[in-house]
């Protein structure tokens, strides 16, 4: 469906991986990131028409963890605000919908995660079917390795050399990112507001997300039909993209995504380094959207695809298509 309004990403900021976040609480980690994104957009704290965030109580180890980070937003006078219990990419989706309703012209979207507070290998097992899967504690690396083996068997991936140190064979330690703490923020704006805030806005030409059944034994692990469907709905296949930011927290999963998204050698994939360079869980997907937008802001891309994922073995996938030209100005 054609959206009734043009909406763009006009600002993007994320926490530095220089140790400056060490010892910070989540609000403290988030604060400089929010301030930078708002500065880029020329907004004061609390000034955005809508605010939406993504994070996870399980990652933080405490219920209602997102309530404290509201401190960094400057939510006074009270703001129109919402929260998704997942990666911030879905917060961006909710904010995009809000702007489409016409109830907001600008939105602040942010995400925060401190995976190093706990052990993600344990924590993320709690996402699984509580009767059949979670009691076995299969960590995300194990599940990704099952996916990798299926890819090797299907001839989509090379068998890794036997001599290398394996994390979970057939995957090596280097096939996975080290979890890092982080925060990211994006500002969305509609139409002329976006043009005022940003010289070269990254217009959201389409965005969609789709889920699959969870049980790995029910799925073809070598494919990602939900990614393909989301990409179709987002209009990704209508024209070639020059850039793709993929949320693949494992090398083998990037193989699955490249196939599902039909990315060939002409596409620059993960110029930011992608999720393998840094995986601030619950933030990583929003960073993909932000990095793709920033490429457009800088003039390095005209049409970029951004992808975010959630759940085991790429269960739930979001795809956005960003362009330097809005809908109304095409052709």
């Amino acid at each position: 469906m054609t959206p009734p309004r043009d909406v763009a990403v006009v600002a993007f900021a994320h926490s530095e991986r220089d140790g400056s976040a060490d010892g910070a609480s989540e609000p403290e980690m988030l604060l400089p990131v929010l301030r930078e994104a708002l500065r880029q957009a020329g907004l004061a704290p609390g000034e955005a028409d809508f605010t939406c965030s993504g994070s996870s109580d399980y990652l933080a180890g405490r219920p209602f963890s997102f309530t404290l980070t509201l401190d960094s937003v400057g939510a006074w006078p009270p703001i129109a605000e919402s929260h998704v219990e997942t990666d911030g990419a879905w917060a961006l989706y909710e904010a995009w919908v809000k702007i489409l309703t016409g109830r907001a012209d600008t939105a602040l979207v942010y995400a925060h995660g401190k995976p190093t507070a706990g052990d993600p290998a344990d924590v993320l097992t709690r996402q699984l079917d509580p009767y059949y899967l979670a009691p076995l504690w299969p960590d995300p690396r194990a599940l990704a390795a099952l996916q990798a083996r299926a890819l090797i068997d299907a001839g989509h991936l090379e068998e890794p050399p036997a001599a290398e140190a394996h994390a979970v064979l057939p995957l090596r330690a280097g096939d996975f990112p080290a979890p890092v703490d982080g925060a990211a923020a994006v500002v969305l704006a509609a139409g002329d507001t976006a043009r005022r805030m940003c010289e070269r806005p990254a217009w959201i030409r389409g965005i969609d997300h789709r889920i699959e059944p969870q049980a790995p034994g029910l799925r073809d692990l070598t494919d990602s039909p939900s990614t393909r469907l989301a990409a179709e709905r987002a209009g990704a296949f209508r024209a070639p993209v020059d850039t793709a930011e993929l949320h693949a927290p494992c090398t083998a999963q990037e193989t699955v995504l490249r196939r599902a998204l039909r990315l060939d050698g002409t596409v620059t994939v993960n110029p930011s380094g992608g999720a393998l360079a840094a995986d601030p869980v619950m933030v990583t997907g929003l960073v993909r959207l932000g990095e793709a937008a920033a490429r457009i802001h800088r003039g390095d891309s005209d049409r970029a695809l951004a992808h975010a994922t959630s759940g085991p073995c790429l269960q739930h996938n979001l795809v956005a298509v960003l362009e330097a030209v809005p809908e109304g100005e095409t052709r």
């Binding site: 290998a121 194990a142 390795a145 996916q147 990798a148 068997d153 394996h166 979970v168 692990l221």
Partner: peptide, 23 residues
């Protein structure tokens, strides 16, 4: 149908010795 070798079992996983995750 697919498998992965786990050289370092974690505490709560079903076996103490290295094992394969299997579908």
């Amino acid at each position: 149908t697919t498998w992965a070798w786990n050289p370092a079992p974690r505490d709560k996983q079903p076996l103490r010795t290295p094992f394969a995750w299997v579908l």
